[in-house]
Design a binder for these strands. Structure first.
Lengths: 275, 275
DNA sequence: CGTTTCCATACCCCCACGGTATCGCTGCCG
DNA sequence: CGGCAGCGATACCGTGGGGGTATGGAAACG
């Protein structure tokens, strides 16, 4: 199977429409239809149920969409990492914008002080995006937060664990309580984060994808959030925090793709575990 | 980057010889040379140092060899799993031949008794081969043994932990001791297992790649081995066992590729954790 | 200095991929 | 009920690129 075929298949599988997929791919519809039929013939597998009115994935097609995306990511990663290996020897670290600020600063300082350390580019990305960056080679290493981010397929080292606090606009009735339980927050407008594929679950709270956005919504009284306690250092006095006793503990981990064990990466991980 | 180009590159990188690589690929040498040059031009990266006498990998080439192999495995996995998804709904479980016999039997029985279970094909493979099978889609799930096998990149659940015993031919002087330490075995012909790439470390002991082979060598007095205690159930009375107090504990885990979460696989994993 | 051993270059051919035109099916609306 | 619009499949054509053979040219070796 060629990556071109995979890209075509994924495009069609994503919008379930040959015409639109073809436009996205910058080609005409007939050769795309043909390419997919050929792929099906070569695999000996039907990938789509087609009526002249609608297209849908078969069982096998669903498998190929999942596995094919992973494969394309791996190919892209190979390409990008090769390019980077030749031009600069630095590392790219991905982290959620607004989260892990303190630990990130300490890590960068500690690593920079090591003998033989290389330049570290920091990519601050939207929630949940780190995994994708790590998988397709745009990043070499990432800071993730359990239990929110998935570490599936990566090697990890735990860095720190902390409890969570609720964030209220100053003056909110609950903000004077010494502590809370999750059940106290059940009826409040908790924000909804996008899942790995960028889709939001249906629900009541506002949709957010980074911390700045969230803090602003809280200040405006449009949202309440539960965040790791370390976020306090970034808050002004227009937001009050209250410990939430039964919120899950948040673990910050450093994660990297399991095979890539360069000297520079090993040094960074070592520096991280020694924090 | 197309998988064809990657396959060409990996072939050349593996034997560092354009002529031989071309033969292996079933093509002539000139088009292969050209394909590699094109790849280098498109990537903007030199992958090989060539003199007209010898070929060697550059830094970037080394990266592409590692990442490219992973990418090719992922593509192959996508293809194989898609094929299998369409023809039969069963699972393929990989396990070392000769190891984990008892736990494997119990697992298969327990899972088969579940409602809605599917057929499970068992692939008994050589030591260290399970990871490759899991990565390239020939298996859906595998039994691995820590700390020997690497679980890098897989999701795992621990199944059992056991201590190790030394195996001697009947009548060996050490076989009557109540217990031993690793240092007692330092001078003895411990066998050498192949690493993930099938290469044996240099050393004194005999090269082995499965348990039958090993047991025969022990019976013949040509080797001594340290194995998990559960192997006792498979031994005849021509082999004696002695506990080794400071040998590392062996953990049997069930491992699977992190994204593939089919209903059938989830059932098997559940059955395994309940053993 | 001839010979051998490699990889690169030159040149040719053909297939496969992409484009345009069109067909055929199906659901919708007047 | 018929015309139409939407969409995928089919037919046919042109070209670029991937593969083949022949050969060049550099380096090691006797």
């Amino acid at each position: 199977m060629e990556t071109r075929e995979l890209r075509y298949f994924v495009a069609v599988a994503e919008d379930l429409h040959f015409g639109r997929a073809a436009t996205r791919l910058g080609m005409a519809q007939p050769p795309l239809s043909r390419a997919i039929s050929q792929l099906e013939r070569r695999l000996g597998v039907e990938l789509f149920h087609r009526t002249s009115r609608a297209v849908s994935l078969t069982e096998a097609g669903t498998v190929l969409l999942r596995e094919g995306r992973a494969a394309l990511d791996a190919v892209e990663a190979a390409e990008r990492r090769t390019r980077r290996a030749s031009e600069n020897p630095g590392l790219v670290l991905a982290s959620k914008a607004g989260a892990a600020g303190e630990i990130l600063a300490k890590l960068l300082d500690a690593y920079a002080a090591e003998p033989g350390s290389v330049a570290v580019d920091v990519v601050l990305c939207r929630v949940g995006e780190q995994e994708k960056l790590l998988r397709d080679g745009r990043a070499d290493v990432a800071l993730l937060h359990l239990p929110f981010d998935s570490t599936a397929g990566f090697d990890v080292e735990e860095l720190s664990t902390e409890s969570q606090v609720a964030l209220f606009p100053a003056g909110h009735p609950l903000s004077t309580r010494p502590h809370l339980r999750m059940s106290d927050l059940a009826e409040l407008p908790l924000p909804r984060w996008p899942s790995a594929d960028g889709v939001y679950a249906p629900g009541a709270g506002p949709e957010v994808h980074d911390h700045t956005q969230l803090l602003q919504l809280i200040t405006l009284g449009r949202a309440i959030a539960v965040l790791p306690e370390s976020c306090r250092t970034q808050l002004g006095d227009d937001i009050a925090t209250v410990p939430v006793l039964d919120a899950p503990l948040v673990t910050t981990v450093i994660a990297w793709p399991p095979h890539s064990r360069s000297r520079a990466l090993a040094g960074l991980i070592l520096a991280a575990t020694r924090l």
